[in-house]
């Protein structure tokens, strides 16, 4: 693939995967935004548009044995980890066929089979659980690593500081990957984070830290790759801070008055990871415009299908109310 007539290489495949993943997330979230505004989405949603390069650049390095812990801003990371698009959509629509059988909803996407863990409703709580996943994979000796996504808001939770220390004390194979989108709900990082430096807090426990432009897929890919490789090689925890733009509100329905006028338009103009990616791969002749357009069209159809499937799908059966509370009988 790649340029006309060139044989497919692993690198081509990886690039196409990255583009397809980011574009799928974007298309999914833009479409969800429109459907939400039209009153078609039956639950509360936090959209990931703008942040695609971060989950995608990370997941490019994750294999079967690796864990990926995610937050309430869950759709994009779940897509990047390879969760089924229809099952994600059905969970958002709270249907029986959803990833969590309709019991969790948008902020709780989870796919145990993929080691996609937890989308967590408690800000910061995932940091500690990620230490546990790391303990388990190291105990088994299966070479697994753990990446824990966290928002900028989470850096101020006590459990996150405790988890940094624990991960360092036990030298756990975990990467704390912060998506700094500038806000926790309506409050800006410049107010909420004293020193306004997330990475520095990781440095305090002696972890290697890195700061990267989270709107640049290639930068995320390289930086996250280094931290993940270090963890895999037994080098212990690291922290990666990614500066990412958030294109929509904290949740759908958020009037976003706390943002400067024109802020989002400017972010879309100057910090769109998909625009940057297209420019780079086209400029270097790695992929062609026709190929990208083909991918885009295919994705639009897939997202359409996932949404129409979800809208038409059956809700959970009444008996589901009482199931799944315990693994065994009680």
């Amino acid at each position: 693939m790649g340029g006309a007539g060139k044989p497919a290489t692993e690198e081509d495949a990886a690039l196409r995967w990255a583009y397809r993943t980011m574009q799928t997330i974007r298309c999914f979230e833009e479409r969800l935004h429109a459907d939400f505004a039209a009153g078609k989405v039956p639950s509360s949603v936090h959209l990931y548009a703008g942040q695609e390069a971060s989950a995608t650049g990370i997941c490019a390095h994750l294999g079967e044995q690796d864990y990926f812990h995610i937050t309430h801003r869950a759709h994009g990371p779940a897509i990047a980890r390879g969760a089924d698009l229809k099952a994600i959509a059905q969970e958002i629509w709270l249907r029986a066929g959803g990833l969590c059988s309709g019991k969790g909803g948008s902020p709780h996407l989870h796919d145990a089979r993929l080691k996609l863990v937890g989308a967590n409703g408690g800000v910061g709580s995932g940091a500690a659980l990620a230490c546990g996943s790391a303990l388990a994979t190291r105990h088994r000796g299966d070479g697994g690593v753990v990446v824990c996504l966290l928002g900028d808001g989470a850096i101020n939770q006590g459990v996150v500081a405790e988890s940094f220390n624990l991960a360092a004390v036990w030298s756990l194979p975990v990467v704390f990957a912060f998506e700094n989108n500038g806000y926790a709900e309506a409050t800006g990082t410049a107010y909420a984070i004293a020193g306004n430096d997330i990475a520095a807090r990781g440095a305090a426990v002696g972890m290697p830290i890195a700061r990267v432009d989270g709107a640049d897929y290639f930068a995320v890919h390289a930086t996250a790759g280094e931290a993940i490789a270090r963890a895999r090689a037994g080098g212990g925890p690291s922290l990666v801070e990614m500066q990412v733009p958030r294109f929509f509100g904290h949740y759908e329905g958020d009037a976003q008055k706390y943002r400067a006028a024109g802020e989002v338009a400017e972010l879309r103009r100057s910090r769109d990871c998909l625009v940057a990616f297209r420019e780079r791969v086209l400029g270097a002749g790695l992929l062609t415009a026709a190929e990208l357009a083909g991918i885009d069209a295919k994705i639009a159809a897939e997202v359409d299908e996932a949404f129409s499937t979800a809208a038409a799908a059956a809700p959970p059966a009444a008996a589901a109310l009482l199931s799944d509370v315990y693994a065994g009988r009680i």
């Binding site: 709900e185 976003q256 008055k257 706390y258 943002r259 400067a260």
Partner: peptide, 17 residues
Amino acid sequence: GEDLAGGAGGGGEDDAW
């Protein structure tokens, strides 16, 4: 509390939420 006003540290309105 969290976001009792909202807007601190952002470029927009105070008391946004």
